[in-house]
Amino acid sequence: MTLLARRTGQVAAEQRPPAGKRHAGERLWAFAFASPYLLHLVALAAWPLLASLFFSMTEYDLMSSPRFVGFGNFTRLFEDPVFWRTLGNTAYFAVLFVPVQTALALALAIALNQRLRGMALFRAAYFVPVVSSWVVVAYVADAVFNPQTGIANQVLGLFGLPAENWLQDPALVIPTLAAVAVWKGVGYMMVLFLAGLQAIPEERYEAAKIDGASAWNRFRYITLPGISGTTFLVLVLTSIETLQSFEQVFVMTEGGPHGASELTVLYLYRQGFQFFQMGYASAIAWVLFVLVLALTLVQFRLQRRWVHYA
């Protein structure tokens, strides 16, 4: 064997172990390194997933043995007006929350991407609600939106406008919840956008300036394409988060008034953990999973048209 061959690792073929044995050894090592994750996947993801698929086709109250009902839960689900209402509520919440949070996070990221003193303080301030629990946020929201004592109605009063029942009015409860959710979540998405903005090479802006591009054109033709990957990530994450929303409504409204803010996951929770209908709850979970998957696939399909990866 030559020195070069040793240095480059190109051991003569006749000195190497047979290919099958070598690959088997590599596979074993690969499996050994991946095993913690695989165990986690099987025990905590794949097994519960398969179990819930099985339960979705049963009548199961957690206490007695599951009784197979085929697609009975799914048939009932599609005929259940409350399920459809919760799905409508969730969609309405998503339609308000996703674009507003994305646009606001981008605007804040651009504003806080300036090289000014004290900017870190502002970034931290916007991030504080992200790390606050929903219970704390619910107290803050009550201070703002309580119809009797809240700041929101006091502000309306200053302009001579009538007071509103923000969380008690079926027409206002979802927009109010969306506003609170944006306030809590915008800081996180802002950080993602900040990272995206800071990854755009400064030279592109300098070249555009020399070419006489206006601030709008620089934003339109450099910033937006430059952060399109981040925007896509934010949209996907926010959409999934919205369809899985639970904690906020559980803490703030419990789905009220009169079910106007009952989102699908809250409905699922009640069916499974309050009403002993784990089979029906599993069916809801699977329908929700299919919807989330479909939405994400559509987003991935559409991203080819507008996302630019540098």
């Binding site: 009550d142 309580n146 119809p147 009797q148 004592t149 029942n165 008690q168 009015d169 008034p257």
Partner: peptide
């Protein structure tokens, strides 16, 4: 009323 009760009671 309903709304005032909920608002005064804060849950």
């Amino acid at each position: 009323d309903y709304v005032t009760t909920e608002a005064m009671g804060k849950g």
